[in-house]
């Protein structure tokens, strides 16, 4: 049986480095590293999607006042607030050579949904990349995911609200009028909740166990525990210095090509 590498590798006070490491894993798996699962957190940060501009998505003054870092990731999707009550997870694996949105959001994301089911929740994917749990007749969004694929490799990363400060979350993220006015799409996105509110006894160890077992089963792989390779650490450092630490990346929304003269190899 093939292997599922599990990493616990985080820099909670440096979300920029953390996101550089995500790209390093992606490239590493592209080059043949084992399927990798990562668990990580941020202390106090807003992470915006690849296509977003910080000043359109974040209440900058409030972020400044609360010392919330603003960092941009290489995957699309929306802006999210992270504190230590939010668990981040990443699965990176080789998949269909011809890139597939479906492999990301139908197949790989199902692995995370299954983990919540293992924890006893009625859980489902909704509207591409939202993960909701249903209690009675109410649904709550507890997780969102975003992913990318290139060169036969797929990376999907997402959140899980365990015990995040939802007040800070609602104040630091801007919600556009167009979204508020939209009645056609489910408003579950705005009913976010912490898993701790739904089940007080669930903590990080339970979630990690469920996610590892779930992906082990979904991908048919045997889990083992590891640390990043030297290559991954070196690559993350280079990506951080060249790109993820820079305002041109985080705030000015420059594409990868803008930074290409610096090293990504």
């Amino acid at each position: 049986m093939g292997r599922l590498r599990v990493l616990f590798y985080e820099t909670p006070d440096n979300p920029f480095y953390s996101l550089a490491f995500e790209e390093a894993i992606f490239q590493s798996v592209m080059r043949g590293a084992d399927t990798t699962l990562r668990f990580w957190r941020h202390s106090n940060a807003v992470i915006i999607g690849y296509f977003q501009k910080a000043d359109e998505e974040v209440n900058i003054e409030y972020a400044r006042k609360m010392n919330i870092s603003i960092a941009r990731r290489f995957t699309g999707g929306g802006a999210v607030y992270h504190d230590l009550g939010c668990l981040l997870w990443t699965v990176a694996t080789r998949g269909p050579e011809k890139g597939s949105v479906s492999y990301l959001y139908d197949h790989l994301l199902e692995g995370f949904v299954n983990a919540l089911r293992r924890l006893g929740f009625t859980a489902a994917r909704e509207n591409v990349n939202d993960v909701v749990v249903t209690i009675g007749d109410k649904s709550f969004k507890v997780s969102g995911a975003a992913g990318s694929f290139r060169g036969g490799a797929y990376l999907l990363h997402g959140t899980l609200l365990l015990n995040t400060n939802l007040e800070v979350l609602s104040r630091v993220l801007r919600v556009s009028k167009a979204k508020l006015a939209d009645k056609k799409v489910s408003d579950v996105k705005y009913r976010v909740t912490n898993l701790a509110n739904l089940n007080h006894s669930i903590g990080v160890p339970d979630v990690v166990k469920a996610v590892v077992e779930s992906y082990s089963e979904l991908l048919g792989l045997d889990p083992y525990y590891d640390l990043p390779s030297r290559e991954e650490v070196d690559l993350a450092r280079r990506l951080y210095e060249a790109k993820y630490s820079r305002a041109e990346w985080n705030l000015l929304r420059m594409p990868h090509s803008y930074f290409e003269s610096a090293s990504t190899t």
Binding site: F51, Q52, E57, T75, G76, G77, G78, G99, V128, S148
Partner: peptide
Amino acid sequence: ATITGDFFIYPEDALF
């Protein structure tokens, strides 16, 4: 012309 938002497009750099 800038097109920003929380959509998904692949490959990503096609947007730029």
